[in-house]
Design a protein around this nucleic acid. Structure first.
Lengths: 105, 105
DNA sequence: GTAAACAGGTTGGCGATACCAACCGGTCGG
DNA sequence: CCGACCGGTTGGTATCGCCAACCTGTTTAC
């Protein structure tokens, strides 16, 4: 693959993942495979509203599952990466790696 | 810098550059230091309208200069990276490299 | 007992963005 | 002359990211 093609491949990166906030979320879930809302809140640096809407979008894309349960008596939301989410993340990561390499040539 | 901080640094990447279309444009100008509209049109794979508006935005940010001249009798638009544009690109590239590395750990 | 604060989120609205279609002025071929 | 083409620009639309306000239940203070 030549440089032009590599660069152009950026045009069809998964926009859902390309958004920094969601990239962070997915990166975390990729290694942890399970995290709750409050953990993500701290770890991502996002606001609650923002985090909530990004999670919803990731769920709609079926990249993650959101399970609602309780920790004692207070509600808790647990997120996990799906197989599709894992695959999409790996694809994106690979594309990005190639582009970064190209940018350094 | 630990992984959390590296990931969180994505939250303040330069959104102007993070947009794939503009990242491609800047990557090209970074090595060529001068390119005309039609060349960019072919090399980026963007549409005319889209390319035009991205160039305008990059110009407003003073990341590139746009000079209008003529090739024979037909108009021609030449784009060049500014010093600020170069610096911004390098910063972005560095951030991205770190994030990619983190994603592979 | 009840009012106030807090935990754990969701939702609405606003401002900004990317993209494409339609347009436009000039040039060239027939 | 006129249609096609070159080299773009502009307008409209649809989407998106983000924060403020809100909501349900729980705990604390008095």
């Amino acid at each position: 693959m030549n440089d032009t093609d590599t660069l152009q491949s950026m045009l069809d990166v998964d926009r859902l993942i390309h958004e920094p906030a969601r990239l962070i979320i997915l990166s975390i879930l990729y290694v942890l495979e399970s995290a709750d809302f409050l953990y993500l809140l701290r770890e991502t640096g996002l606001g609650k509203g923002n985090l909530s809407s990004h999670l919803t979008r990731l769920e709609q894309a079926e990249y993650i599952t959101i399970e609602k349960t309780y920790r004692g008596k207070t509600p808790m939301t647990i997120c996990q990466l799906t197989g599709a989410g894992q695959a999409a993340f790996e694809t994106y990561r690979e594309q990005l790696k190639n582009v970064v390499n190209t940018m350094y040539k």
